[in-house]
Computed example of a mutant assay.
Amino acid sequence: MEPSDLRIALFSGNYNYVRDGANQALNRLVGYLLRQGAAVRVYSPVVEHPAFPPTGDLVDVPSVAIPGRAEYRVPISLSGEARRDLEAFAPNIVHVSSPDIVAHRAVSWARERGIPVMASVHTRFETYLKYYHLELFEPAVRALLRRFYRRCDAIMAPAESTAAILRAQRMSRDIGIWSRGVDRDQFNPDRRSEAWRAAHGIGAGDVMIAFLGRVVMEKGLDVFAAAIQAAQVRDARVRALVIGDGPALPWFKAHMPADTVFAGHQVGTDLAVALASADVFFNPSITEAFGNVTQEAMACGLPVVAAIATGAQSLVLDGVTGTLVDPEEVEGFAEALLHYTAAPEVRRAHGEAGLDYTKDRDWDSINDAVLRNYIRLVARRERLKSRFGNAPPRLR
């Protein structure tokens, strides 16, 4: 098969209405696929004022806002209009990127027609529950996820550490890796700006510890705040830089030290300048399947302090590009931050090692892995059809 033979129906719970690492990766993928000659149709909720323009053709699916998190929406049905569009598009592969109701309907639609389905994993939804005191439901959520993914023909995870957990949880027998690239024209050490630091009241001796991302509790805000406070008690040079916005921002501001710099939501060059102007990147989250922001910080030459969790374990080499800490050890995080504060030469060496790691993280070569997986699944389905007719046994 050639890429131009592919007709890909992509289902996403959030393609462009809120900016995050997952949907930016999906938009980059669609851009790459279109450049290779593939046909792509995206089915996702549409809002009046999205965070950024979508790449490719976007078809609206009915959705409702999540209670308490109105910026996010849940697709609720594969409407008659969307279904007719899907039938007319006639995909030869379906890609589902979130385990929501519409994705379930899309999988059923594809299975009824003998069309292969690939799922991509972008976050570990079951880990969110602990931040909302709902750990009791983790086994049930994991069972639902297993049912969803085992109805798909293959899964692609963003990192080997995530893939290992998916295998252990028996989500699928066919799990590949779709990693993430980094735009090194945007994220690089040359973006560091002493003028930017001075404009934000950052002194020459301050060691700025950066947070970057949506300001939501599942990003480990409680651990971040506690670790910064513990470190600052022992060394006043430690200060925090928060880049991002979100519904938990009032909570974060109330629990962070008074000298924290809140830079707000940043994009493009402004984002790169803010991040590169920090000294250490701190990511305590355990919900990431990959951690795009961690890789972007590494591309800026920052050492990383991160939780021992999926995503970070595949990016951060402990003692070389950063420091990995047990996610429950607030004092351990504080010690790691203080080590980088006291040892600028170690900070510089680990930052340079991280920069070297990102030099080969090219988006096109990474997205080609997804393209090849599509071709593999479609070709395998065609071989089975030639043997068994229009109702071949399901791929496993």
Score class of each variant (00 low, 15 high):
266 Q>W: 09
267 V>K: 12
269 T>S: 11
270 D>N: 14
271 L>I: 05
273 V>C: 10
277 S>D: 08
277 S>I: 07
278 A>G: 08
278 A>N: 05
280 V>W: 01
280 V>R: 01
281 F>V: 03
282 F>L: 15
282 F>D: 03
283 N>V: 09
283 N>W: 04
283 N>L: 12
284 P>S: 10
285 S>W: 03
285 S>C: 07
287 T>C: 13
287 T>V: 15
288 E>Q: 15
289 A>L: 11
290 F>I: 09
291 G>E: 08
292 N>G: 13
293 V>M: 13
294 T>D: 06
294 T>M: 14
295 Q>M: 15
298 M>D: 08
299 A>M: 12
301 G>H: 05
301 G>V: 14
303 P>D: 02
303 P>E: 03
304 V>E: 00
304 V>P: 00
304 V>D: 00
305 V>L: 02
309 A>G: 09
310 T>W: 09
315 L>M: 14
317 L>F: 10
318 D>I: 06
318 D>E: 08
318 D>A: 10
319 G>A: 12
319 G>V: 14
320 V>Y: 07
321 T>H: 02
323 T>L: 02
323 T>P: 00
325 V>M: 09
325 V>R: 00
328 E>V: 14
329 E>K: 14
329 E>S: 15
330 V>S: 03
330 V>M: 05
332 G>V: 02
332 G>R: 04
332 G>P: 04
333 F>V: 04
333 F>C: 05
336 A>N: 01
337 L>Y: 00
340 Y>C: 00
341 T>L: 03
341 T>V: 14
347 R>L: 09
348 R>L: 10
